[in-house]
Amino acid sequence: MKKRIALLSDVHGNSTALSAVVEDLKKRDVDTCWFLGDLVMPGPGNNELFDLLAGINTDIYIKGNWDDCFLEVIKSHSTLDLSDESDVYIGILGQYVYEKLSTNNRDKIKKFETCATRVINNLKISISHNLPDKNYGSALIPVAETSNFNELFINSSFDIAVYGHVHHQLLRYSSQGQLVINPGTIGEPFFCAFKTE
């Protein structure tokens, strides 16, 4: 049975961009959507992001590093290091999103998976934001060595790995010929902030 799956990633609170993507998907014959992480922050989008994804039959929600940042702010808002500019920045963003999000949607973020596995048409697929056990870092930038992409395959039984995080569309293979897919970003443009030396 043919199944069409939309891969979405890295909204980063940009409800305008997500709305445009959703409107386009509604014109296509898509059965389901998989969201690969970073739904909230640094943009101001909140409850409408969840509504938009629910409206296109999204059945996988992966937790990105920014989603983790939001959860960390909720958990440790009283222990932010006010001498650290990045802590202050993340804290202010997190507080804004927290105040806007419904309790139901806050709870949904807490339940986002770190990684998931699905079998579609006898193909076993690994789904993550970055590496299956680490949703941050620069190991999977487009110019990384093939050995880095091998880490997406927890074991050799996987046929395909999909991930987000690096804001760059990508189609390549592991050293064993397993397909690697990255759909790119919805909410923030790609820029290479990682050194490759």
Rank of each mutant, 00 (worst) to 15 (best):
residue 59 D to P: 09
residue 39 L to M: 09
residue 193 A to Y: 15
residue 84 D to P: 04
residue 9 S to Q: 03
residue 174 S to Y: 11
residue 119 V to H: 03
residue 187 G to Y: 04
residue 53 L to N: 01
residue 88 V to S: 07
residue 94 G to Y: 00
residue 193 A to T: 07
residue 4 R to S: 12
residue 101 L to C: 02
residue 9 S to E: 04
residue 72 E to T: 15
residue 8 L to I: 10
residue 106 R to I: 15
residue 2 K to L: 09
residue 86 S to F: 15
residue 73 V to C: 14
residue 134 K to A: 09
residue 132 P to N: 06
residue 195 K to D: 15
residue 49 L to D: 00
residue 11 V to P: 08
residue 119 V to M: 06
residue 19 S to R: 15
residue 12 H to S: 00
residue 26 K to N: 12
residue 74 I to P: 03
residue 136 Y to T: 10
residue 34 W to E: 00
residue 91 G to C: 01
residue 157 S to E: 14
residue 102 S to M: 12
residue 174 S to V: 06
residue 120 I to R: 00
residue 113 E to V: 10
residue 142 P to A: 10
residue 132 P to R: 01
residue 33 C to Q: 04
residue 112 F to Y: 06
residue 166 V to P: 04
residue 30 V to T: 04
residue 101 L to K: 05
residue 190 F to G: 02
residue 157 S to F: 09
residue 40 V to E: 11
residue 16 T to M: 12
residue 64 G to F: 01
residue 89 Y to L: 12
residue 68 D to G: 14
residue 138 S to W: 06
residue 82 L to H: 12
residue 71 L to S: 04
residue 117 T to D: 13
residue 106 R to P: 09
residue 80 L to K: 15
residue 75 K to H: 11
residue 32 T to D: 04
residue 91 G to L: 05
residue 164 G to N: 03
residue 29 D to T: 05
residue 104 N to D: 13
residue 61 Y to C: 00
residue 176 Q to Y: 09
residue 78 S to H: 09
residue 157 S to I: 12
residue 57 N to C: 02
residue 144 A to W: 08
residue 176 Q to T: 11
residue 182 N to C: 02
residue 49 L to I: 14
residue 31 D to F: 10
residue 4 R to W: 09
residue 110 K to N: 13
residue 72 E to M: 13
residue 109 I to H: 00
residue 186 I to W: 00
residue 93 L to E: 11
residue 196 T to D: 14
residue 29 D to G: 06
residue 40 V to A: 10
residue 16 T to P: 05
residue 178 Q to C: 02
residue 93 L to Q: 11
residue 153 F to N: 07
residue 145 E to W: 02
residue 47 N to S: 03
residue 151 E to D: 11
residue 180 V to H: 07
residue 120 I to D: 01
residue 195 K to F: 10
residue 101 L to N: 01
residue 149 F to V: 06
residue 197 E to M: 10
residue 7 L to V: 06
residue 151 E to P: 00
residue 139 A to S: 08
